[in-house]
Nucleic acid binder design. Sequence first.
DNA 1: TAGATTGTTAATCGATTAACAATC
DNA 2: TAGATTGTTAATCGATTAACAATC
Lengths: 212, 212
Amino acid sequence: MMQAVSRQTLQRLPDYLNCIKSLQEKGILTVSAKTVAEILGLGEIQVRKDLASVSTGGKPKIGYVTTELIKDLEIYLGYHDSRDAVLVGAGKLGRALLSYGGFKEYGLNIVAAFDTKGEEIENDSTYSKIMSIDCLADLCRRLKIRIGIITVPSAYAQEVCDMLVQNGVLAIWNFAPTHLHVPANILVKNENMAASLAVLSQHLSKKLLEEH
Amino acid sequence: MMQAVSRQTLQRLPDYLNCIKSLQEKGILTVSAKTVAEILGLGEIQVRKDLASVSTGGKPKIGYVTTELIKDLEIYLGYHDSRDAVLVGAGKLGRALLSYGGFKEYGLNIVAAFDTKGEEIENDSTYSKIMSIDCLADLCRRLKIRIGIITVPSAYAQEVCDMLVQNGVLAIWNFAPTHLHVPANILVKNENMAASLAVLSQHLSKKLLEEH
DNA sequence: TAGATTGTTAATCGATTAACAATC
DNA sequence: TAGATTGTTAATCGATTAACAATC
């Protein structure tokens, strides 16, 4: 038990957590892999294996104690020890992510935002300052920032990426629709909206063909 | 040749297109799978197989004619015949997507946005109207909308989803961090930011452990 | 005890990679 | 012609699914 977690499994864990939390809110005290599988439309065995990889609390006949499983998932996902991040590119998307606020729940804390020209902007609850990109190097080093979020136009993404990596960032969340080159030990996670659209579009093409 | 395209392949196609377009802008007239593979950091054989699945233009020793390959990719991805979509939920994220504008390039045209209370908002270039959710059913049917984008809070996502499906929507792009239940012939593509964060966070945990 | 549910080991499936013949 | 690059067929790899023993 407690084997290595594949990337696929890892990406399903937040869904499990979500699902189990909502069961808890309904007052349900124990939960089985079968229940979760049915709610999420996944295979029962897959869920069982995934859960076994992050928790040892499973009891035959009973399942998992809801509160414990939630705790195990949150710990595994690092939702407790929050991580500081910076965001570069305060355009529409960048500002939307900044003001979203929901990332804190996932252990992500955006401590600063940068753009070519610094300025003050208003958020929902707080005023935050968008700093000039000239301050990036210093701030990343001083606060030991390890996560960078890139929301600049494609043409500038590589440049920004290099700057982040040079100043200690180890993981990059890239919203620019472009491929970034990084050293081997740096992770780039692309939020690839064009890829998502491709999936939607192909499904639609198939369905519309079927209509005839 | 021209075999069925797997979902993995499909999701790589926009990256290929992007890459090849930027080569074209540099004045490069033909391109080989090897070149694309090196730029994107993928396997050469994988790229070759992927490209073969959407284009028959490959010539030994030469590769693909850049302009033709771009055309084949764009046609396959449906970037030419633009598809109308509606967006539901005009919060920060919803407005960011509305004003992004870049989706048109990918053949997606957001023709209307809905929220519980209708209102006028200002965009970059145009004023667009956010309509009351009461108008959704009528508009979707009248314009034969087939794509719905959900950017409402989790608690309302299923309700909105049901409404869209009831009014003819066949594909849903879901930004709410929740699992949606739909009939078998409807596709839901989740833009799962929590899953992305899980990947970033785990990488970071590993790296930070290594530092000791 | 009986039965539901767990965790694990083996089988299947699909995607990636390797090998290679075809060809411009 | 020679060599680079294609497309295809076979081998490998990893994830999912099936089967089943263990156990509360």
